[in-house]
Amino acid sequence: MSDGWPAFDVERDSPTFALLHLASQMLGKLRVAHAPWANHGWHVTLAPVAEGLVMPPIAAGGRRFELVLDLCAHAIVLRTSSGSRDAIPLEGTSVSGIHSALIAMLDRNGLPSNFNGRPSELPDALPFAEDEAPRGYNQDSAERLRDALARVVPVFERFRAGFLGKASPVHFFWGSFDLAVTRFSGREAPQHPGGIPGLPDRITREAYSHEESSAGFWPGGVTAADPIFYSYAYPEPKGFRTAAVDPAAARFDETLGEYVLPYDDVRRSANPEAELMAFLQSSYDVAANLLHWDRDALEREVAAP
């Protein structure tokens, strides 16, 4: 630990993050199936909460219900507007086991349980119902992710508060398993070429319909990797890849097409919050300046709580 920021280890944490990634997709896909579409797909993202991540409420038969990926109870927890509660465990099962248990829980509570059963944005992934291999789940790994989000989210929220223009909430994309916040200039962008595995081009093009500067935190997931912070611009302006971005540990990743900053460098720094904010602000500065955004109209000083 460094000032409360938890350390991660790929070998130890990846099996748990992979299971959480696929479980989070089930929650998101349920919302896709039973909620009206909103701009950029923001209605289907998960929201960071104290316990972990929550699916926004769904209306059903005069009630509303939500599902929490609870990293304290290590369960998917059901909460309804009538006050009923239910849960299924994340530990000691398979992806198929979580899938069938989730459907059974929704059915016994008289709630809609149908959703697309194939993972998104994951090439060659088995349908949830067919992924029967036993999965490891380490409670400590899940709690480290929860505690990292508790540190990262307030920095993202403060960064978002400095923008007057259209901006996303600080939310969690279950397709790629990352926390993100996005700012927009208000101008339309060139049509995105699409081609993201497991994601229809119409969804990608709607998501990137307007100029944006986006930043996020990716802990890994089905892909075993060291956690990173990232920042990119769409469309990518000329000179973006060679611009100077703070702090010194940040670099442009040619494969990902975005600036990256290792989470561990932030964690080990003397002031992790300031280090992360420097990355968010400087990478946004580069994008906004090269894309000629009207920064005087779009930005403001952050008000104290």
Rank of each mutant, 00 (worst) to 15 (best):
P119R: 03
P119L: 02
P119F: 02
P119N: 02
S120A: 10
S120N: 13
S120I: 08
E121K: 15
L122T: 12
L122I: 14
L122C: 12
L122M: 13
P123S: 03
P123H: 02
P123V: 01
P123A: 04
P123M: 01
D124N: 12
D124F: 15
D124W: 15
D124R: 15
A125W: 04
A125P: 05
L126G: 05
L126Y: 06
L126P: 05
P127Q: 02
F128S: 03
E130I: 09
E130Y: 13
E130H: 14
D131H: 06
D131N: 08
D131Y: 05
D131P: 05
D131T: 06
E132G: 11
E132L: 14
E132Q: 14
E132N: 13
A133C: 04
A133L: 06
P134K: 02
P134T: 01
R135L: 06
R135H: 04
R135E: 08
R135I: 07
Y137E: 00
Y137S: 00
Y137V: 01
Y137R: 00
N138Q: 08
N138R: 09
N138H: 10
N138S: 10
Q139W: 08
Q139S: 11
Q139H: 10
Q139Y: 09
Q139A: 13
D140N: 09
D140F: 07
D140P: 07
S141V: 00
S141T: 00
S141I: 00
A142V: 01
A142H: 01
A142Y: 00
E143V: 06
R144P: 11
R144W: 10
R144Y: 09
R146K: 14
R146D: 11
D147M: 14
D147I: 15
D147P: 15
D147G: 15
A148E: 04
A148W: 03
L149S: 14
L149A: 11
A150M: 13
A150F: 14
R151H: 10
V152D: 04
V152S: 04
V152T: 04
V152N: 04
V152H: 04
V152I: 07
V152Q: 03
V152C: 04
V153K: 08
V153W: 07
